[in-house]
Computed example of a mutant assay.
Amino acid sequence: MRIPRSASALSATVLAAAVLAPAPAHAAVTRIENTVQIRCAFTTQNQSSDWYFPAGTPKALVWLQHGFVRANDHVADLATEYAEHGYLVFAPSLPSASIFGCTLQNIGNNTDYLDNVADLFGKAADPADKLGRSFSDAKTRAGRSGLALPSAMVFAGHSAGGEAVPYVANRLRTAYPQAFARLRGLVLFDPVKSFVGDNLAGALDGLKTTSLPIQAVSAPHGTCNNSGSGTSTLQDRLDRPFLGVRLTTGAHTDAEGASTDGVGTLACGTPKAPNIAILQTLATNWSDGYLTGSPDPAYYPGGAYYDGLADIETLS
């Protein structure tokens, strides 16, 4: 079931970049469209946000962030898969252009803005704060008024979102340690390093001092992932035995799956059903392992599911 937001609440900056595709229908998941407030310089944005409610009590909160010049509708397929797997998903649209530097990708200096995004999660335990108010509206409209916002969190980001997510996680580590303690892991989908600055490298340098799990599902090098810049940075900065997989027949749009559109496929390739299935299966099962602290070996090298996959390359 999908309950829409008002048209005025949509982010004009992002929507101008692409025609949004409708989300595919899935059973037992309720999608609520509303807004979330994020500070931007001396203003406050009312950004489009989607909430996906699973049928039962959520395992954890997943923040799912779209990529550059994309919007939350483009990750609807993956968000619904997470929700069907038992997660409450928060998927906001963040701007790709702003005169104040309030952008998802670093095209000038977006660190102050991403600090404000981190503030959402740093204060998530306060129902009167920005994320809590958005969630309260969403759960009321979903008929789930008695539901509490899960304490445990998993962050997942695609493309430029795959740089923003580690930055925000590291900001929690330094500025909101209690919230960081509730963060269980990161999943990055073909992450892209910005041409400007060192947000990704700096964040990974901070996070590598922790035991926070970080895994990626990446595509072959191409224009849309800046020649694999984000994945290469991940490999250079994190000295860990397993960092995820590269889908050797994959496309940058694999994380968008059935939610991608003509703009995405024309620019970045058409996702194939087997690669979408691999990405979604690994992401949800890795996330389960982050929560329990006991990862299922089936989804790691040497495991039955993992070793049965074709056309993958292990990232380390």
Rank of each mutant, 00 (worst) to 15 (best):
1 M>C: 13
2 R>Y: 09
6 S>I: 15
8 S>N: 02
10 L>W: 01
13 T>W: 03
18 A>N: 03
19 V>F: 04
21 A>Q: 00
21 A>S: 08
22 P>C: 08
25 A>T: 12
27 A>H: 14
28 A>S: 03
31 R>S: 10
31 R>D: 02
38 I>P: 00
41 A>V: 14
43 T>N: 15
45 Q>P: 08
47 Q>F: 12
48 S>G: 12
52 Y>C: 09
52 Y>P: 04
63 W>T: 01
65 Q>C: 07
67 G>P: 05
69 V>I: 10
71 A>R: 11
71 A>K: 11
76 A>V: 08
79 A>C: 05
79 A>V: 03
79 A>Y: 00
80 T>F: 00
82 Y>K: 14
88 L>M: 02
92 P>V: 05
93 S>T: 15
93 S>M: 07
93 S>C: 09
93 S>H: 12
96 S>Y: 15
97 A>Y: 13
98 S>N: 14
99 I>Q: 15
101 G>H: 15
109 N>E: 13
110 N>V: 00
112 D>L: 12
115 D>M: 01
116 N>F: 03
116 N>A: 08
117 V>D: 07
117 V>T: 10
117 V>Q: 06
119 D>G: 11
119 D>K: 09
121 F>S: 09
124 A>N: 10
127 P>W: 07
130 K>R: 14
130 K>H: 13
138 A>R: 01
139 K>P: 00
140 T>F: 09
141 R>M: 00
142 A>Y: 05
143 G>H: 09
148 A>D: 07
150 P>R: 03
151 S>P: 04
152 A>G: 06
153 M>D: 07
155 F>A: 14
157 G>A: 14
157 G>M: 13
158 H>L: 11
158 H>V: 06
159 S>M: 07
160 A>C: 05
160 A>P: 07
167 Y>F: 12
169 A>I: 14
170 N>R: 14
171 R>V: 10
171 R>E: 09
174 T>H: 15
174 T>C: 14
182 R>N: 12
182 R>E: 15
185 G>P: 02
187 V>T: 07
188 L>F: 02
189 F>P: 04
191 P>Q: 03
192 V>R: 08
196 V>M: 13
198 D>K: 11
199 N>A: 02
199 N>W: 08
200 L>S: 13
200 L>Y: 12
204 L>P: 13
207 L>G: 06
208 K>M: 03
210 T>W: 11
211 S>D: 11
211 S>R: 10
211 S>T: 07
213 P>K: 08
216 A>N: 10
217 V>E: 09
221 H>S: 05
222 G>L: 11
229 S>C: 12
231 T>E: 13
231 T>H: 13
235 Q>K: 09
237 R>V: 10
238 L>Q: 05
239 D>E: 10
239 D>K: 02
240 R>Y: 01
243 L>P: 00
243 L>A: 06
244 G>N: 12
245 V>R: 08
247 L>N: 04
247 L>F: 05
247 L>Y: 01
253 T>K: 05
253 T>W: 09
253 T>C: 10
253 T>Y: 04
255 A>R: 02
258 A>E: 05
258 A>V: 01
259 S>A: 08
261 D>W: 00
270 T>M: 12
272 K>Y: 04
274 P>R: 04
288 D>T: 06
291 L>K: 03
295 P>Q: 04
296 D>T: 11
299 Y>D: 06
299 Y>V: 04
300 Y>R: 15
303 G>W: 01
309 L>A: 02
309 L>D: 01
309 L>I: 09
311 D>Q: 14
313 E>H: 11
313 E>D: 13
